[in-house]
Nucleic acid binder design. Sequence first.
DNA 1: CTGAAAGCGCTTACAG
DNA 2: CTGAAAGCGCTTACAG
Lengths: 341, 341
Amino acid sequence: MARAKIQDVARLAGVSLSTVSAVLNNKNVVREATRLRVLEAIERLHYRPDHYARNLARRSLRVIGVIVSNLQNPFFAETAQVIENEAERLGYAVSLAVTNFSPQRLRAAVQQMLGARISGLAIMTSERDEMAFDMAAQSGVRCVYLDVGKPGPASTNIRVDLRGGMMAAVKHLIDIGHRDLLFVRNAPIQSGPLLLSHRYRDQGFAAAVKACGIPNLQTHIIDVPGLGAPAGEEAISRALGRFPFTAVIAVSDIVALGVYLGLQQRGVRIPQEVSVVGFDNTNFSRFLNPPLTTVDIPRDKLSRLVIEALTLPISSRVPRSVRLGTHLVVRASTASPARRS
Amino acid sequence: MARAKIQDVARLAGVSLSTVSAVLNNKNVVREATRLRVLEAIERLHYRPDHYARNLARRSLRVIGVIVSNLQNPFFAETAQVIENEAERLGYAVSLAVTNFSPQRLRAAVQQMLGARISGLAIMTSERDEMAFDMAAQSGVRCVYLDVGKPGPASTNIRVDLRGGMMAAVKHLIDIGHRDLLFVRNAPIQSGPLLLSHRYRDQGFAAAVKACGIPNLQTHIIDVPGLGAPAGEEAISRALGRFPFTAVIAVSDIVALGVYLGLQQRGVRIPQEVSVVGFDNTNFSRFLNPPLTTVDIPRDKLSRLVIEALTLPISSRVPRSVRLGTHLVVRASTASPARRS
DNA sequence: CTGAAAGCGCTTACAG
DNA sequence: CTGAAAGCGCTTACAG
């Protein structure tokens, strides 16, 4: 049995196409009795308006595209969900794509979204792709980028203060007496360049180290390929014994998770022997043992900024750049280093 | 400047519509020189084929719909991502919707997906909605349900052996000597009925308790409204002191996270004083301190079953029901209870 | 390979 | 409210 179309509904209900269409689109021009007759016909025929025909015929779509790198990292999952909820409230549908950190998939997702005539596009990825950004910028569609991306008349860059967050983390550790810091980073894609978001964290680390001007400060940076937690574990297994450190800063909470396991498996107590700081304040961080000190990137504010920029009236100029503050959430994973005995 | 259409490309390249269309769809009938000319025109005009016009004109779409309850719970996020990767490999696009545990949103998502002429629909939610299931079943579209859902000629129910998993968990605890068990459940929606997935876990718990036939076994069940980890924390704060228990089974890993915090904040050591078992084997569970004993629901196998059922040739009969085994992963969060002194 | 044409299933003025 | 008609931007036979 073929799908019912609007004609079938009109015939069964004994009304015109226009009337069925009016009912479907909740226009208040149809008498109640007629409306009910149409609804009944829809019900009996299991009619569902064809999405493509509908959107092809419509003028404006009220769809927002959201592209994230990965759903396994709670930071992306939370961000996507909060944006989705916010958009829904304003009557926008959300189309979500996942790139798995692949620039090719990012490009394909942007193309697909532009073809879907989205009214706004949020690119919330860690990876970047020039072609994808060019396509987005040239389309004239409103875009929001997360720290990466292309300036343009229709695009807003949300500059998350990653440097400031990282500086706060370093400063906190120095303040409580640490002098040997280990910075653990990971590269989610084997061959790719360092993610820009990681680079900002790097810069913050370097800047903080410099700004503090502590003469006897020792810092080590360890880079591990791979995704998330396992990379953190690997980093610890490589660092322990090779050089001394009393505190670890992980480039993300997910990596911090691996750092925890790496330390605890080897009997190193947190924070008595080694302090740990994460980055992102993902939802699990306060449930770790000990609860993780981490840099918060406020998701609710982020999603509001995204939605605001993407749903601005057509005529208005979009802000080129907005700044999103971050702040350190101090929990029990950091403490003064044990005195050398 | 209006969006370019296929006509504009044809004109600029000096070819016919059909030729541009052939290039867009990678048909091997266009001379290389012509193809390049078309691609250049596309480039210059920033042309992106309209998604809706395209799909309206096409016969088959190769799109799979996936509906999940929530992205904050890693179980759903991981499942969605694995299905997406698998589908992509087979040349299917994936449309993802999130319900936030709302039956209304589930219904809307199903309607929307049916209107999008998906070739298959995976409903991977905890909540259920009769109307949504009816609509899906009557549409004739291939459906896969996760434990909930409606039998029908085109639908496959993946029966995750939650009961078996729960029995294994209970049996493990009893085997190592526990006699006072606390079962912590949560209801993500305030008013809604108990989730079916939770009900199976309940049944498993009851069945295991019965099957073990231990005379002096004490069990307590505590129900907490709310989502995820905070519910687990709340449960512990209510249970501690009110009744004795040496082991906790949490209805999900996320809830177990809250149980950990609840116990550890009150100085109760895991597993020395209280053992904890989770459910789902989400990616963070092995990184907890101590690593969490939990019931594994194999995501890769699950996604393969989903994709298989949804991409079966049109003519073939779909299996009504397939079974997905679960197994207990024993880690350091469970141990024999301390002897009463 | 090309070109003209039909058709996909809706929405939207517009005249009644 | 109704009905006939145009149009959304593609794909797909089909005759050349």
